[in-house]
Design a protein around this nucleic acid. Sequence first.
DNA 1: CTGAAAGCGCTAACAC
DNA 2: GTGTTAGCGCTTTCAG
Lengths: 337, 337
Amino acid sequence: MDKKIVDVARLSGVSTATVSRVLNNSGLVAEKTRTKVLQAIEQLNYYPNAAAKHLRSQRTRAIGVVVQDINISFFSEIIKGIQNAAFAEQYRVIVCDADNSPAKELEYLDLLLNRTVDAMILVSCALPDEVLDELAAKGHRIGLVCRQSRNPLIPSCITNNVEFSAEVVRHLAEMGHRRIAYISGTEGNTDSQDRMEGFIRSLAERGLAFDPLLAENGRFNEAGGYAAMKRLIAKGLPFTAVYAANDEIGLGVYKACREAGLRIPEDIAVVGVDNNRITEYIEPAMSTVSQPKYRLGAELTGLLIRRMEHPSEEDGVTVRVLESELIVRKSSNYQRD
Amino acid sequence: MDKKIVDVARLSGVSTATVSRVLNNSGLVAEKTRTKVLQAIEQLNYYPNAAAKHLRSQRTRAIGVVVQDINISFFSEIIKGIQNAAFAEQYRVIVCDADNSPAKELEYLDLLLNRTVDAMILVSCALPDEVLDELAAKGHRIGLVCRQSRNPLIPSCITNNVEFSAEVVRHLAEMGHRRIAYISGTEGNTDSQDRMEGFIRSLAERGLAFDPLLAENGRFNEAGGYAAMKRLIAKGLPFTAVYAANDEIGLGVYKACREAGLRIPEDIAVVGVDNNRITEYIEPAMSTVSQPKYRLGAELTGLLIRRMEHPSEEDGVTVRVLESELIVRKSSNYQRD
DNA sequence: CTGAAAGCGCTAACAC
DNA sequence: GTGTTAGCGCTTTCAG
């Protein structure tokens, strides 16, 4: 059987309260007593029981992170940011891989409801606003990465989607492109929507009309990008560049181009988003937008923890927007006439 | 304040014991009573408090997984296997990313000691056997993936490293290679050692001498592989193929070859291990060994849970070895004279 | 089939 | 500085 706090108390000849004080550095304890207790703890190889602690203190110092797919490097980098920021504040992180199942995503919220975690961070979450608002209203702590909430109870951290999309358009326009297709991500994803918005607005600013026929849905994955690009090609409309809502879609575009005998970048320029490692290794290297993934997670976590520890200052910033950087590589680095 | 079990009991006019029985489907409860209780639960929006449950029942139905780096797809696939197998048995998985720090890896064992989890799965763990044996002796449940333990208390699941390495040698020999270099992984890693053993033994069986000068350490990452390949080239010894202990090392070899003006596969053949997605996308596509990552995690988890639930049958298999498959791609698909 | 009550291991008043 | 003690919310004998 495991040792308990009374065992330590008995061995060191003090009360359980004193042992608890030593354990948590709370209250005053004479140096001599502290030493005695520490020795007993060592000698008995005592470990505090987490469940009892949690039950008594009504907090766990654990933060849950729900992620669509742990195997996508974009997400795992964000997790690292969350994790390190949390550790710095003595919080533990519980990573929950929803394995691309929205149902599982919901299931994990249970951890919040049953108090296994003190707060939950949802990365690129697709749940309707109402669900999140209701949770927040009930006093549950939620934070959002890659999705914005105008609910002041829900801090969020996103990237400057609109701005960097304008940057992409600027770049492509400079390379001589006039008709640019957009392949979007998952239906309803705010990142994808913002990118599209930035794209369209920026086209307009340059007097380039946005042709709705040149927009397709690519579901944020390679297969979706492939199918979308095939549909675009099939339409027979002229276009010379593709802005893909993420790199996976871009990879699908590569595949479709290869099959259709279209050369990148000579016939079609491609720009993705995320700076997935593959974009550097593939031939031709893919232009992309590098988002501060790690910081996305770290900053949100800082915000969230601050709010948990100082509920008084519930005002202040709730949405943090981080800058991203366009990386031009071979796939779009070709000047047209 | 959250609702508690007494609130449900009061509202439904029964005792807390009965509510508990309904909640856990334990003991007999009249259908009518059950309905009443369920209604009350619904009405109050009651959620059982996990900490109280854990404290009382002395188990958490949670399994921890410690992984060097969550951002390495080889590991995240294993996690998925673990996760799904665990879910099927109503266990929850807590993913712990050690972020490449051995210290953090150790730190996470705390979750086991303080009973936050019922068991811990260590993926490709580098801790000394003594540490693991001691934990197991104290009654803690541990499982190993990608590392073997001869301790019957510690189930483990590995791949057939020796055998598939022989397969790699066979393939390279058939393509006409006589002098093959080996670049190993992290010092002390059993996977890497087994691969080297299979490599050497297989060379011997074919009457090909193993030249110790053609072995270098590549630390399982691209930078390590790059440096190792540079050292190999610098030696000026003849060799026509490289067997890299994993794909990352292989990528480093690619880079070194590019710089040295060596063509793959004409001058140097390369074979990696892991079937990292990049190997398919890089030019030339890299030959590699596909390991059953998902199953590696899933099978071990099954073993582990079975032992937790039926401690009586502590005998039976403790080590499971899974088959892998050599995938020949362009990087080694070139017949030499 | 249901209820009463003990207690899981810990912390935090409160008293001294 | 230190000890006593009342719970945190739940499950589980043991009675009935």
